[in-house]
Every structure is written in C-alpha cells, then in structure tokens.
C-alpha cells in the first residue's frame, strides 16, 4: 500500500493547471507546424503562424495561451492500493484548482449556479472523473476546457439502422455546424457506443490522446483518417476564414452498446488543446 497526503495533491494540481494553460503540448505544436506546410490559404497560413507565435509567447512569459482558461476537467486514475491521508481527495483537487488559478493569474470562469450565474471567484468546482484501477499509483490529468469549443458539442442517439454512414454524416454535420466558432484547427473527439453519457465521456477523453496517435483498431484508424480528410474539405480552415486545415486530428473511441441504440458524441477542442498529466509512485508503506 502507498500513502499520499492531500497537500502533495493540492500542490501538483495547482502546478498542472498553470502548466496546461501556459504550455501548448509539443505534439500540438508539431501538428500546427505541419498544418502550416499543408495549408493552401495564405490567410490560413498567417493564422497558423499567429497561433504558433502565441504558443511561444505564452510559454516564455507565463501568460495563458487563451483568455478562456476554461472550466477544469480532472481525470483521476487511482490505484486501489493507494491511501489518501490528511483530508478529502475531491477537496484537495478543488483546492489545487483554486490555488493554480489564483497564483497563475488565470481567469475565473465558473459560475456557482447555471441559472443565477454568480462567479465562484476561484474557478472551482472542477469536473472530476475517478477511475479506480489496480496498483498503488496515482495519475492525475488536468484539462482546462474552453467553452468556445465546448458549446459545439453534439450528441446523436442514432438508430442501429443508421449504421456507419449515419455515424459519418452525424459527425461531419456537427463539425460543419460548429464551423468557425470552436477556433479551428480543432481536434475532434468522437465517442461511439455505450449510453448517451458514456459516449460523451469517450469523446471527451479522446481529446487527451496524442494528436498524431491512431486508434489501435485498424478499422477505426481508417475511419479516423477518412473523417479527417472529409472534415478538411469543409473549407473553414484556420480561424474559420477559409482554408484546408479545419482539423488537426480525429480521435475515435468506442464502447459496447445496447441492441436498440447507436449513440454518437462529438466533442471539439480548439487549437489550444491543453492538458497536463502528473504520475505519482511513492515509497512503499510497510
């Protein structure tokens, strides 16, 4: 068994929130550079250049990549042999978010109640997903999610008869409807199967994959390539002002589903595809 104190969790969540907002992951940077070579529109090339330069400034000056520093999603994988001491894990994560957003001069974008809309002042609460896994390690991923792209999320409860063609149409239509609004070039996370909520979570988690990664199933990998090609024929391009590169990647995740259903969820991430992970493996406690 391993023991971890909540103070270590607070400290690291605070750090992850800041790093995620200041440092564009290197896979996204590489993809942006590659996109600039492929982009045909000079306007699009210019915008890709601005996005790249923006990432350099953000990293050097510790300024957020985007003023929408997001609502924080936290994905926790906790080994079943880990014991958290000194307080509540959920409270520690929220305390880390509050500290990170205060210390990092990040925008506080969360309102306490969706209808009354008073700002909580510290960007909490986070949206936290826990997975209990075998082992004695802890893995925390922080994903600040901007709402320009979040507002473009789509869920389709298709009929089994709609089949693969229906799934493709639904996805393409969702990206087409979003158009310039989610700050293209986007990454497209897709969840197929499960229940409605499961499909959405799969789609959201798919956004955490490395930009260049492909699904391990060759059929799904081929579908990812096909959809990316189709999306990049929509014409929106960087910034949505016209061009080739509307998306940098399409990532599909699937799950078993019910005989009566074919749920499809589409989650988009803007080009500021922010996420950071911390893995902890402490000393054994005898």
């Amino acid at each position: 068994m391993q023991e971890i104190t909540v103070s270590l969790i607070v400290e690291n969540v605070a750090r992850l929130c800041q790093e995620a907002n200041f440092d564009l992951p290197s896979d996204v940077r590489d993809a942006l550079q590659e996109a600039a070579d492929l982009e045909e529109s000079s306007q699009g090339k210019r915008i890709l250049g601005e996005i790249y330069e923006n990432a350099c400034i953000a990293q050097q000056e510790r300024i957020p990549l985007c003023q929408d520093t997001g609502m924080v999603l936290v994905f926790v994988e906790i080994g079943q042999d880990v014991h958290v001491t000194g307080g509540s894990l959920t409270e520690a994560i929220n305390a880390g978010v509050a500290r990170g957003y205060q210390d990092g001069y990040l925008r506080k974008s969360v309102v306490a109640d969706p209808l009354h809309r008073k700002n909580t002042g510290d960007n909490t609460p986070a949206v936290i997903y826990y997975d209990i896994v075998p082992g004695d390690q802890l893995r925390i991923t922080v994903m600040p999610k901007g709402f320009g792209s979040e507002n473009c999320t789509a869920l389709g409860m298709l009929k089994p008869a709609d089949g693969l063609d229906g799934v493709k149409r639904f996805i393409l239509d969702a990206v087409d409807k979003a158009g310039p609004n989610p700050c293209p070039p986007v990454t497209v996370g897709i969840g197929i199967g499960g229940t409605a909520d499961k499909a959405l979570l799969l789609a959201k988690r798919a956004l955490l994959r490395d930009v260049k990664s492909a699904n391990q199933d060759p059929d799904l990998a081929a579908l990812e390539r096909e959809l990316l090609e189709a999306i990049n024929k929509l014409g929106y391009g960087p910034g949505g002002l016209g061009g080739r590169i509307t998306a940098l990647a399409v990532h599909i995740e699937t799950y078993p589903t019910h005989i009566a259903g074919l749920p499809v969820a589409v989650c988009l991430n803007c080009h500021a595809a922010r996420h950071k992970t911390w893995e902890w493996r402490g000393e054994k406690v005898e």
Binding site: L32, Q33, A36, D37, E40, S41, S42, Q43, K45, R46, I47, L48, G49, E50, I51, Y52, E53, C56, G242
Partner: peptide
C-alpha cells in the same frame, strides 16, 4: 484569398498582405 504563399510558421505576423 486565392494566393498561396510559402510563409514559414512562426513568422505569421509578417505576411505580405
């Protein structure tokens, strides 16, 4: 909108428009 330029990434603020 139709012109293709070979602008390098990272110098986006200096394009020819």
């Amino acid at each position: 909108l139709n012109s293709g330029s070979s602008q390098q990434c990272g110098s986006g603020m200096n394009d020819d428009q």
